[in-house]
Amino acid sequence: MRPAHLNRLSVQQCADRYLDLVRAKTVTGALSPATAEVYARDVTTFADLAGPGLVLDDLTGEDVDAVLLAFARKPDGRRTHPESGTQSASSQSRFRRSVSAFFKHATLAGWVQLNPMTAATVTARERGGLRPERRALTREQAQGLVGAARDLTAAEPDAGRRDQRTQVRDALIVLLLSTLGPRVSELVRANVEDFYTNDGVRYWRIFGKGGRTRDVPLPRDVTDVLDTYLTTARPAAADKALLLSWRGRRLARGDVQAVIDRVQRHVDPAQRRTVTPHGLRHTTATHLLADAVDMDAVRRVLGHSDLSTLGRYRDELPGELEVAMRAHPLLRRPATGGER
Rank of each mutant, 00 (worst) to 15 (best):
V256W: 04
Q264R: 15
I260L: 07
V259K: 01
G254L: 02
R249E: 00
P269Y: 13
V267W: 09
Q271H: 15
Q264A: 14
A258H: 15
Q271L: 15
W246P: 11
S245N: 09
H266E: 15
Q257Y: 11
R265Y: 06
L244Q: 02
V263D: 07
L243F: 13
V267L: 08
L244T: 04
D261F: 05
V259Y: 03
R247S: 05
V267M: 08
W246H: 14
Q264E: 12
L251W: 02
R249N: 04
Q271A: 15
R250T: 04
G248C: 01
R273T: 12
Q264H: 10
R249I: 03
R262M: 02
R247G: 05
R262V: 06
G254M: 05
P269G: 12
A252P: 00
A270Y: 09
R247D: 04
L243G: 10
P269I: 10
W246F: 13
P269Q: 13
W246R: 08
Q271I: 07
R247K: 13
R249Y: 05
V263Y: 09
V267D: 07
V259Q: 03
R247C: 03
V259A: 00
R262H: 07
V267H: 07
R247T: 05
I260S: 01
G248E: 06
R265N: 11
D261A: 14
R250I: 04
R273S: 14
I260K: 06
W246E: 07
D268G: 10
D261E: 15
R262N: 05
V267T: 05
R250M: 03
V263F: 06
D261V: 12
I260Q: 02
P269N: 12
R265I: 06
Q271E: 14
R265Q: 14
L251A: 01
G254E: 09
R253P: 03
V263G: 07
D255M: 11
G254T: 07
R273V: 11
L244F: 01
G254S: 10
D268F: 08
S245I: 06
Q257R: 08
